[in-house]
Simulated assay, not measured.
Amino acid sequence: MRALLWLHRWTGGIVGILMAIIGLSGTVLLWEDAWIMLPGADEPAMNDPVALGFVIERALEAGPDLSRITFAGEEIGLHQAIYADGGGAYLALDGTVVERWDGMWERPELWLFDLHHYLFMGDAGKIVTGVLGFLLLGFSITGLILWWRTRKTFTFRLWPVRFTKSAIVRHHRDLGVVASPLLIVAAFTGAVMVFPAVAAWLLSPLAGEKAESPLPDDLAAVDARTDWRRVMTSAQAIYPGAEARRIMLLGEPGAPIAIRYRQSFEWTPNGRSYVWVAPDTAEVVAVEDPATSDTASAITEKFYPIHAAKVGGLVWRTAMTFAGLALVLLGLLASWSFWFILKTRG
Rank of each mutant, 00 (worst) to 15 (best):
H116V: 03
L136D: 03
I82N: 11
A92C: 09
T233D: 13
R58C: 01
V128P: 04
G208R: 13
A34S: 10
G26K: 13
Q80H: 13
E283Q: 14
E57Q: 09
T155F: 12
P196M: 00
L38C: 11
K310E: 06
P196S: 07
G271F: 07
D294L: 12
G190K: 01
A199G: 04
V28N: 02
R245E: 04
R170Q: 11
D280T: 08
V198G: 12
I69M: 08
D217P: 00
P44E: 00
E74D: 14
G88S: 08
D42P: 05
T268C: 04
V128L: 12
T11F: 03
W6Y: 05
L206V: 11
I127P: 02
Y83K: 10
E32K: 13
K302G: 03
A237P: 06
L136A: 15
A211T: 15
E301V: 07
L249F: 08
T344C: 06
V285K: 13
R68Q: 09
A211S: 13
R245I: 06
F54M: 12
G122Y: 05
T233I: 05
E32D: 10
E301T: 03
E57W: 04
L144R: 11
W147G: 02
F154T: 10
D65K: 11
D218N: 15
W147T: 10
G73D: 15
I76E: 05
N47K: 08
K210C: 04
M320G: 06
A167T: 05
D217S: 15
Y239N: 12
L325D: 02
D85I: 10
F71T: 11
E61F: 09
D33S: 14
P305D: 09
G12R: 02
T321L: 03
W316N: 00
Y90P: 05
V192G: 08
M37N: 14
Y274L: 14
V231S: 14
H117G: 15
R229G: 13
A319M: 02
W316M: 04
W101M: 02
I127Y: 04
K126Y: 00
L60M: 13
D123I: 04
R245W: 08
P240D: 04
S166L: 02
I14H: 02
F54V: 12
P279R: 08
E43F: 05
A207R: 11
G95W: 07
E32F: 07
D102Q: 15
V275K: 12
A124I: 01
L135R: 03
M19T: 06
E266C: 07
V285E: 10
K152C: 03
F134L: 15
D280E: 10
V28C: 05
V277F: 06
I145Q: 01
E109Q: 15
L52P: 13
I56Y: 11
G190D: 01
F156M: 11
D85G: 10
